[in-house]
Design a protein around this nucleic acid. Structure first.
Length: 259
DNA sequence: CGCGTTTGACCTGCGC
DNA sequence: GCGCAGGTCAAACGCG
């Protein structure tokens, strides 16, 4: 297995461990524990237990709403999506070659290139990606990294635009897309693409506490430190938490675990 | 002045 | 081949 494949696999595993939490005014994804350590909710959830989402459903990005796992007050559907798209090099090369041949035959295109030189867009193979939904009033959620917005696009069938962001750290090609659900405007859909190749640039505003990247967090997304404030005393039961890192001063969010 | 956002134009993939 | 929709570029602009 190549390094990239290993990263993709890890990122898939990691993404499965992030589940949706909710509070009165916002929802968060909180990291769960690595499956190799304990059998936790995400394992039951993904291993075909009755009424739980199947692995195939995760990949197909289909709605994962289920009466057994949703305790949302508003009963709106919850979509937890995650996927990886490992690039196929041979296919990629074939496409590039095909395009070269096409451009050679197309004189008009060549003239266009000469008269209007445009920086060739580097099409890197798609790295690992995953998306999650959060319930928030702000579109761009603080995650510890510095992002630069490089585009915004109106979407068909949605009154809300999609914002395109890139990690500002040099040589880090991680991108993210942020859009608001047109079905539930209180929901923000964030899609990450790629893996950070650096540590967090600094702390979040306020008293954010971010841990270093770890083996179960290959994408280097911040592991928020949640204070265990309820539920069972077993360490791997993520039941009730205050979320410490967010800079919203008061009140502390009381998070509710689905399931 | 440096950094980030805005925004119109351009590029690319895909379905018909 | 064409048109559409999504993704990206880059100049202009704003702000601290």
């Amino acid at each position: 297995m190549s390094d990239q494949e290993a990263r993709d696999q890890l990122s898939y595993n990691d993404s499965l461990q992030r589940l949706l939490f909710t509070s009165n005014d916002s929802s968060f994804i909180a990291p769960l524990h690595h499956p190799s350590q304990h059998m936790n909710f995400s394992d039951n959830y993904l291993h075909g237990s009755s009424n739980y989402i199947s692995r195939a459903n995760v990949f197909n990005l289909s709605s994962t709403y289920d009466s057994n796992i949703s305790t949302r007050k508003d009963d709106s559907p919850v979509m937890i999506s995650s996927w990886t798209e490992a690039g196929n090099d041979e296919e990629e090369e074939a496409n590039v070659s095909k395009k070269c041949k096409q451009s050679k035959l197309d004189g008009g295109e060549i003239l266009k290139e000469i008269s209007k030189p445009k920086k060739k867009v580097e099409r890197k193979e798609k790295g690992s990606r995953f998306a999650f939904v959060t319930k928030s009033e702000t579109d761009h959620l603080e995650d510890g990294y510095r992002w630069r917005k490089y585009g915004q696009k109106a979407l068909k069938n949605s009154p809300y635009p999609r914002g395109y962001y890139r990690c500002t750290t040099q040589n880090c090609g991680v991108k993210k897309r942020v859009e608001r659900s047109f079905e539930d405007p209180s929901v923000v859909i964030t899609t990450y693409e790629g893996s950070h190749n650096h540590h967090l640039p600094g702390t979040l505003r306020g008293n954010a506490t971010i841990s270093s990247p770890s083996f179960h967090n290959p994408l280097n997304y911040p592991d928020y430190n949640y204070e265990h404030t309820g539920g069972t005393t077993r360490s791997n039961d993520n039941l009730y938490y205050h979320d410490q890192p967010h800079s919203i001063p008061t009140p502390l969010h009381h998070l509710q675990f689905y399931g």
